[in-house]
Nucleic acid binder design. Structure first.
Lengths: 236, 236
DNA sequence: CGACAACTTGACGTTAGTCAACCACGGTGG
DNA sequence: CCACCGTGGTTGACTAACGTCAAGTTGTCG
């Protein structure tokens, strides 16, 4: 949830100091006085479930920090299939490529109601050359995205369907309290694991029969992560 | 092939000016006078096929620019399988994570004889804060790695084996003249596409029967890329 | 020339994809 | 308030694709 201070359309930069997401986001560790170097407002936006934050090949002028909700980055094959290449959550950056590339590389689609801060890319690029902390943060975010990609390649794209689904559930439940976590629709899960919706549905039904997971509403699930990790032989 | 000027164990920094890989590597666009800011030698190394440049979890002190050859970045699953998450070639950086993380994230294994320049990571980090060109290059390399990861997720990890193999061949033949390109062993191909060696072998045999590709020696192949692209419906 | 590794091929089993029907839920409008 | 519809999820029967196990074959390098 987002603090009330941030809950307006425009923020003066000083208000970033109060942002509850700041500690984990792009401007973490950046000294308040350095934040003042920014002279244009940061825009705060709320995106409804299912709508696009930006599109593939669109001119990339903004970077977004995700405050709340879940966002998928989607790519399409010439054969028509789609693949979800990343899934972003609180504290993650969407559209980092705005700093280096001219166009966005994916469709960014909200999987839930999503709130973001919209930061002009040129500002980030300029400031990152002046503020070492920001420079480091940017590199860290980039590295983090790469690590996640590697994880998806090794853990979510190999092995039998049961393992893939379980590894996704483990990944989804990271940083979630109460063993309870967001679970996307079957089709989206399929597009992350390259499985069909039917296979995903059957696999989840199987896990449910075996008592490994519990469904809560259409969007959420609960599971004992350590048990799941044992199944796929991860160290707890 | 590497120019004779670089063919010694240590290089003074001034000699980087003469490096034939410089234009496409980390120090592209960096002004010669800025290169002089570096005061410790860059080490030039040659790695034999099959040996490791660095290991997973090893302390990450150096970044490597690849001059020649092919290098695979490998990750392992707790179940024992391995997955090749990236394949580096001339101009690519190995071990960029040295700038941000403490340890290397993969095993880096030479698939051919490989030559690299070994650059202390702290130097790169420091200079990247002083030299805007280097800063930009670093971000670009990082972005490039991410884009490649995305490609691998969408193009090399989905669809039937025939499509995956063809998409890999297309990717391998990029930037190669004469429609002739490096083709890794069947097992390595399998570990990039998450297929078994047998399936890869059968698929390649099939492509050969259909006249789509031609094998040259154990390591190389030739193919008409446009024909391949048509099969997987890529725009030429 | 021999030994070993990499590659190939075949027969067979298993898994996931396909096609199709059906169910459950939430929202809409009569 | 309830009938209706649409979407997303489930289930079943069948099929195609890939994995597995087990021989062979080729190639390479000392």
């Amino acid at each position: 949830m987002i603090g009330a201070e941030c809950n307006k359309e425009f923020l003066a930069f000083e208000e970033c100091n109060l942002c509850p997401t700041r500690e984990i986001a792009l401007f973490a560790n950046v000294k308040p006085e350095d934040l003042l170097q920014m002279h244009s407002p940061i825009q705060y936006e709320v995106i409804e479930k299912g709508s696009k934050l930006y599109e593939f090949n669109e001119k990339a002028d903004y970077i977004y920090t995700l405050h709340d909700g879940a966002l998928k980055l989607v790519q399409y094959l010439p054969t028509g299939e789609q693949r979800i290449v990343r899934l972003l959550r609180r504290g993650d950056l969407a559209g980092i490529e705005a700093v280096t590339a001219g166009e966005y590389q994916h469709d960014a689609i909200a999987m839930t109601k999503v709130s973001v801060c919209k930061i002009p890319a040129d500002i980030v690029l300029n400031l990152s050359q002046k503020i070492p902390e920001l420079h480091a943060n940017l590199l860290n975010k980039w590295q983090h995205a790469l690590t996640t990609s590697d994880t998806w390649l090794t853990r979510l794209s190999t092995g039998p369907s049961r393992y893939r689904v379980i590894r996704l559930l483990i990944w989804l439940s990271e940083n979630c309290p109460d063993e309870e976590f967001f679970m996307p629709g079957r089709e989206d899960i399929g597009n992350m694991l390259s499985l069909t919706t039917e296979t995903v549905s059957r696999t989840i039904a199987g896990l449910r029969r075996d008592g490994e997971i519990e469904l809560l509403g259409s969007d959420r699930a609960r599971a004992d992560v350590d048990t799941l990790k044992k199944i796929v032989k991860e160290p707890a």
